[in-house]
């Protein structure tokens, strides 16, 4: 039983790490903001859940498991919400594909009174 739990915990942790790294590659390599956001937003929730479940299986202490469960539930709420808010703010501010590649130093005028 113990070996089964250990192996499943390792599998969860490794899957989570793989998803994390794929999200990281996505944020570095994808061409524009919306695709980057898609890479991060999709992998982030699942990777967090995987790693936290792996830690839960790794640990027999009940109180620590409750805390991990709280973190898991909160990140399940928070990270999709943050992604949604970010995407809709970008949409609302007419942040379309065409002005995407402009660096923001050009988008903003230096403040001179």
């Amino acid at each position: 039983m113990d070996t089964f739990i250990n192996i499943s915990s390792s599998v969860f942790l490794l899957t989570g790490s793989f998803l994390c790294i794929s999200g990281g590659v996505g944020i570095l390599r994808f061409p524009d903001f919306y695709t980057r956001m898609h890479a991060v937003g999709v992998t982030e929730t699942l990777a967090t859940a995987m790693i936290l479940i792996g830690l839960m299986l790794h640990n027999p202490d009940f109180f620590v498991d409750i805390k991990l469960m709280i973190i898991l539930i909160m990140s399940l709420f928070i990270s999709p919400t943050a992604s949604h808010a970010l995407a809709s703010a970008a949409m609302r501010n007419d942040f379309s594909q065409k002005n995407n590649e402009k660096p923001d130093s050009e988008q903003v005028k230096p403040w001179n009174p």
Binding site: S105, V108, K109, P110, W111, N112
Partner: peptide
């Protein structure tokens, strides 16, 4: 309140 970019 103050604006977004540094003074030159």
């Amino acid at each position: 309140m103050t604006g977004r970019s540094e003074h030159p």
